[in-house]
Simulated scan of single mutants.
Amino acid sequence: MIADHLREQIVLGLLRPGQQINESLVASQLNRSRGPLREALQRLCQEGILVSRRNYGVFVLEFETHDLREIYEVRDIIESAAAGRLLDGSPNQIQDTCEVLKDILGEMAGQMAASDWQSIARLDMQFHSALVAGMGNSRFIRIYKTLAAESRMCILDLKVSYPRVDLLIKEHQIILELLESGDRNGLLKAIKRHMQKAVEDLTATRQDKPVSV
C-alpha cells in the first residue's frame, strides 16, 4: 500500500525527479512506522523509480535520454509480444481486450475538452497496460507495471512537445483497429511507430539533458 501510494505520487509529479524522500514526513503523513516505509522504498528502488544514494538518502529517479530510449525499447518488445500472443489466441480473448481498449479510448476523448493532461497520461498507460494484460501472462503484466510507472513520468512532459492530444488518440485508435482486424504486420508496425514517436517527442529539445517531468 505504501509503495503504491508513493508510486502514484511520483507518476503524478507530486514528488519531482531528483527530489529526496523525507522518511519522517512520509511516515507521519501515512501514519506508518519507519520499518514498512523503508521496505516500500526498497521495493521502489528495485523497480528503478527511486534511487538510493549511500549516506545521502533515497531520491526520485531523474531521467536522461538513454533512459527514455531503453524504456520505450522494452515497451515495444513487450507490447509486440503481447499483440502477437493475443492474435494467436481465441477470438473471444481478442474481442474482450478490444472492448476494454474502446472504453479507455472513449474516456481519453472525453478528457480532450477538459485538457486534463494528467488524466490523459493515466489513460494512455491504462490503454497499453490493458493490451499487455490481454495476453494473460502474469509475469509480463508484472514487468510492464514498472515500465508503465516510468512512462507516465515521461508522458507528463509531452504536454510541451506534443500538444495535439487528438493525434495521440488517433495513434491509439489505429492500434485498436489493427488488433480488431487481425492485421499482425500492421499492428506490430503501428506499435513500433508509436514508441518511436514518443521517444522523438520527449528527446526533441533535450539533447541528453535530464528530463524535467
Score class of each variant (00 low, 15 high):
1 M>F: 14
6 L>Y: 01
8 E>K: 06
9 Q>H: 14
10 I>A: 01
10 I>N: 02
10 I>L: 00
10 I>Q: 04
11 V>H: 08
11 V>D: 11
13 G>L: 01
13 G>W: 02
14 L>V: 02
15 L>S: 03
17 P>V: 01
20 Q>G: 14
20 Q>P: 14
23 E>W: 05
25 L>G: 11
25 L>T: 03
27 A>L: 06
27 A>V: 01
28 S>V: 00
29 Q>H: 09
35 G>V: 13
38 R>I: 01
42 Q>C: 00
42 Q>R: 05
45 C>G: 09
45 C>K: 01
49 I>R: 07
49 I>A: 05
49 I>C: 07
50 L>I: 04
51 V>A: 14
52 S>C: 10
53 R>I: 04
54 R>M: 15
55 N>H: 14
55 N>I: 10
56 Y>E: 15
57 G>I: 01
58 V>Y: 09
62 E>T: 11
64 E>W: 11
65 T>V: 05
65 T>Q: 14
69 R>M: 06
70 E>S: 12
71 I>Y: 07
73 E>V: 02
74 V>W: 11
76 D>R: 12
79 E>N: 07
79 E>F: 05
83 A>P: 08
84 G>R: 05
85 R>N: 13
85 R>E: 05
86 L>G: 05
88 D>C: 10
88 D>M: 07
90 S>A: 06
91 P>G: 03
92 N>H: 13
92 N>T: 15
95 Q>M: 13
100 V>G: 08
100 V>Q: 08
101 L>Q: 02
101 L>F: 00
102 K>S: 04
103 D>Q: 13
103 D>N: 13
103 D>S: 01
105 L>C: 02
105 L>E: 04
105 L>Y: 03
105 L>P: 06
107 E>Q: 15
107 E>V: 05
109 A>P: 00
113 A>L: 14
114 A>S: 15
114 A>H: 15
115 S>D: 11
116 D>G: 02
117 W>P: 09
121 A>G: 12
121 A>M: 01
126 Q>S: 15
127 F>G: 07
129 S>V: 10
130 A>P: 05
132 V>M: 02
132 V>P: 00
133 A>G: 09
133 A>V: 09
134 G>K: 13
134 G>M: 12
134 G>V: 02
135 M>D: 10
137 N>K: 05
138 S>T: 08
142 R>M: 08
144 Y>D: 12
147 L>I: 03
147 L>A: 03
147 L>H: 04
149 A>E: 02
150 E>L: 08
153 M>V: 06
158 L>K: 04
158 L>I: 01
159 K>H: 13
160 V>I: 15
161 S>A: 06
161 S>N: 11
162 Y>N: 04
164 R>E: 09
164 R>V: 02
165 V>H: 06
165 V>A: 09
166 D>G: 11
167 L>G: 07
171 E>F: 03
175 I>R: 03
176 L>H: 04
178 L>K: 06
178 L>H: 06
179 L>K: 10
181 S>R: 14
181 S>W: 06
182 G>Y: 04
184 R>C: 03
185 N>H: 07
187 L>S: 07
188 L>W: 14
189 K>M: 10
190 A>W: 01
190 A>P: 00
194 H>P: 12
194 H>I: 05
197 K>W: 12
197 K>F: 14
198 A>L: 06
200 E>H: 07
201 D>H: 15
203 T>E: 11
203 T>P: 12
204 A>C: 04
204 A>T: 09
205 T>S: 00
207 Q>S: 14
207 Q>I: 02
210 P>Q: 03
211 V>P: 04
213 V>E: 11
213 V>D: 00
213 V>P: 11
